Simulated scan of single mutants.
Amino acid sequence: MNNLKTVSNEANTQSTRTSDKTENGTPIIMPGKETDKDLFLKMLVAQMSNQDPFNPQDPTQYVTQLAQFNSLEQMMNLNDGMEYLMGMTNGLLVNSAMSTATSLIGKKVEAYAPIEEPDGESSEGDSSEDSDKKTLTGVVEGVHMKDGIVYMDVRIDETKELKSIEYAALIKVSDNNTNTEK
């Protein structure tokens, strides 16, 4: 019974191995699957070892390919490093904005009013003339983050309505009890 299980396991393992490789043993890379740097080197070695002895390739082609591969590898490493650095920087900026916005709780602020979209949504808008934008004043009662953007919950002076305003729309800050600007 154990021998039968061993034979069937070996057959399953062998069929799995052969389905991932060609009849020559070359790995099959499926579309969309990630390939690694070693694949290029394996292909280059296979190309060198299987070349026609009566019509060998020019060695400068190999040197050129290796130089291109080296450049590609360095660009990939640089790209990975930049992505990591951007992620760290974005995290620091969001944390800093959240910390600063939190320190504004209880303070009177002036900020650009969100532009009302026809569908009822609001956005900060990016018009080129800041003087055309409407401003709101009120007291910050809280802060929150949504989709990586820091918002201040501001009680508007005119309407006493609580509005969420992007921290980036902030113009100036003053103490709630006094009119001194900070």
Rank of each mutant, 00 (worst) to 15 (best):
residue 170 L to N: 10
residue 89 T to V: 05
residue 31 P to T: 02
residue 8 S to L: 13
residue 35 T to I: 04
residue 81 G to H: 13
residue 19 S to Q: 14
residue 13 T to L: 10
residue 47 Q to K: 12
residue 151 Y to R: 11
residue 2 N to W: 08
residue 112 Y to D: 01
residue 121 E to K: 15
residue 154 V to A: 04
residue 112 Y to L: 10
residue 166 E to M: 15
residue 5 K to F: 09
residue 75 M to C: 07
residue 43 M to F: 12
residue 180 T to N: 12
residue 79 N to K: 14
residue 138 G to W: 01
residue 3 N to F: 05
residue 100 T to H: 13
residue 23 E to G: 07
residue 150 V to L: 14
residue 12 N to I: 09
residue 19 S to H: 14
residue 105 I to E: 15
residue 85 L to Q: 11
residue 72 L to W: 10
residue 100 T to D: 13
residue 122 S to H: 07
residue 11 A to P: 05
residue 74 Q to D: 01
residue 75 M to L: 11
residue 109 V to E: 00
residue 42 K to M: 02
residue 98 M to F: 07
residue 136 L to S: 11
residue 65 Q to D: 04
residue 114 P to G: 07
residue 26 T to P: 01
residue 5 K to R: 14
residue 121 E to Y: 14
residue 18 T to G: 01
residue 152 M to P: 01
residue 87 G to K: 12
residue 52 D to G: 03
residue 92 L to N: 02
residue 66 L to T: 01
residue 78 L to P: 00
residue 65 Q to P: 01
residue 85 L to V: 04
residue 96 S to N: 05
residue 31 P to V: 02
residue 45 V to N: 00
residue 5 K to S: 10
residue 110 E to P: 04
residue 41 L to A: 02
residue 128 S to C: 00
residue 87 G to C: 06
residue 106 G to L: 00
residue 111 A to L: 01
residue 122 S to N: 05
residue 36 D to I: 00
residue 50 N to M: 06
residue 54 F to C: 12
residue 162 L to I: 15
residue 136 L to M: 12
residue 27 P to Q: 11
residue 179 N to K: 08
residue 135 T to P: 05
residue 43 M to N: 14
residue 104 L to S: 06
residue 137 T to P: 01
residue 51 Q to R: 11
residue 132 D to L: 08
residue 47 Q to A: 13
residue 48 M to W: 11
residue 11 A to V: 14
residue 124 E to L: 09
residue 113 A to R: 14
residue 114 P to Y: 06
residue 15 S to T: 14
residue 14 Q to P: 03
residue 38 D to T: 06
residue 39 L to C: 04
residue 35 T to F: 07
residue 6 T to H: 14
residue 56 P to R: 12
residue 179 N to H: 03
residue 140 V to K: 03
residue 24 N to H: 10
residue 145 M to G: 12
residue 89 T to Y: 06
residue 30 M to R: 13
residue 182 K to Q: 09
residue 154 V to H: 02
residue 89 T to W: 02
residue 123 S to E: 12
residue 43 M to A: 13
residue 166 E to S: 15
residue 6 T to D: 14
residue 159 T to D: 11
residue 123 S to C: 08
residue 123 S to T: 14
residue 161 E to H: 14
residue 24 N to L: 09
residue 176 N to K: 07
residue 42 K to F: 02
residue 3 N to R: 03
residue 63 V to C: 01
residue 68 Q to Y: 05
residue 157 D to K: 09
residue 137 T to Y: 04
residue 124 E to R: 05
residue 35 T to N: 06
residue 109 V to Q: 00
residue 113 A to K: 15
residue 160 K to I: 02
residue 45 V to H: 00
residue 1 M to H: 08
residue 119 D to L: 11
residue 70 N to Q: 04
residue 43 M to W: 08
residue 171 I to S: 11
residue 73 E to V: 08
residue 179 N to R: 08
residue 142 G to N: 08
residue 117 E to H: 07
residue 149 I to T: 15
residue 87 G to M: 11
residue 50 N to L: 07
residue 70 N to C: 02
residue 121 E to W: 07
residue 131 S to Q: 07
